[in-house]
Every structure is written in structure tokens, then in C-alpha cells.
Amino acid sequence: MPFESDITALWITLRLALITVLVLLLTGTPLAWWLANTRWRFKSIIEAAVALPLVLPPTVIGFYLLIAMGPEGPLGRLTAWLGLEPLAFSFTGLVLGSVIYSLPFVVQPLQSTFSGIGRGPLEVAATLGARPLDRFFTIVIPLSRSGYLTAAVLGFAHTLGEFGVVLMIGGNIPGQTQVLSIAIYDHVESLEYASAHWLAGALLLLSFLLLLLVYGLNRRFDMVKI
């Protein structure tokens, strides 16, 4: 049976994944749009930077974040200057870490969807008098439904499975920064295999259902393609 702290960890994990995805969809959309349309010659630099979390061990991200959040790090100085609480060992810090960690999982699907739309439909709309924002919300967004779905679910699921970054900057505080993957790790290391099984199984099922949702819905969108 799960402990009460496990239920708390589950809620924190879901809340973290949800907030992270919302932040990423809001910030990722303009970034992906820009990447899909810019002719800037150094665009690859930004693309490579966005893809970095795919190849870096999460511990590297966590380590740099921990240093950056310390009193002498740039983030630590910034929060102190703004009179805010330090980011390390806080839920806000975890959101920041997760946004960086899951960035490519949201930006890349969006970018390829935006590229796939091409300039044609937008130019037609422009000749009909639609303004840029109008064009974006009435043409690009509806045409990118499947890209948004993929981005949202991948970003969410990837944050659910986050471990290394949280281990480095979380401090394992129940009710604040103790997420599901850390709770599982604790159970395994303190030899509570039954609880570990329970949680690990739940996470496995949840992740599978989420991915099933993406593939199932994407197929459906394909069939009723606009």
C-alpha cells in the first residue's frame, strides 16, 4: 500500500507537469514559430541549444542550476535583488528546471508542425486582408492541433519521469519538492519494495496511457484532416 506521502508526491508531480507544460506552450509557441520561419543564418545555434536537454544527462542540468541558484550564482543574485525567495529547494525552482528539461519535447513538435503548414495558406489569408495575429489564431493554431497535442503530452509525460534534475535541486522536501520518481527511489533504497512496486506501476500505466492518447488521437486527426 502507498504511504500518505506517496499520494502527496503524486499530486506534486501532476501539478509540476501541468504547470511546466502550460509555461512551455506559452513560451514555446513564439520560439517554435520563429525557428520555423526565420531566415537568420545562425538559426542552428538556437536549434542546437533547444535540443541540448535531449542529449545532456539531467544531472548536468541539475548541477548547473544548483550552482546558478546559489547565493553567488546569477539566478541566486537575481532573486536576492528582486527580494524573492531563493529558487533552490522550492517548487518554483522545480518548475524552472522542468521547463528547461522538457523544452525540446514541446518546441520540436511545434516547430515541425509550423514548418509543415508552409507559407501558402498564410499568404492567401493575407491577400484576403487578415492581420498577422488574426492569421495565427484562425489558421496556424487550428492547423497545428496535432502538433500541439503531441507537444503537450510529450512535455507532460517527460516531466512526470523527471529524476536527475529534481534530485539535484529539490532537496526531497515532502509536500514541496518530493516528486514521484524521487519517492520511488527512496522506497527502493530503503528496501520497501512493495511501495516501490505500487508507485512504479502507477507511473508506468499513466505514462503508457498518455502515449496511447497521443498516438490514438494523432491517427484520428490524420483521418479527418482538414
Binding site: G70, A88, I173
Partner: peptide
């Protein structure tokens, strides 16, 4: 106010990095 390191090395590192 407690933060927990996974082992004693990480506990030390939290202090060494100035975060605790």
C-alpha cells in the same frame, strides 16, 4: 527548514554550493 541529500556527499554539496 530541512532539506535532504540522497547521501552524505550530496548533503555536503548543498551547503558547499551555498544553497543551504
Amino acid at each position: 527548514r530541512l532539506v535532504q541529500g540522497e547521501n552524505i556527499a550530496q548533503t555536503y554539496q548543498f551547503v558547499d554550493s551555498g544553497n543551504a
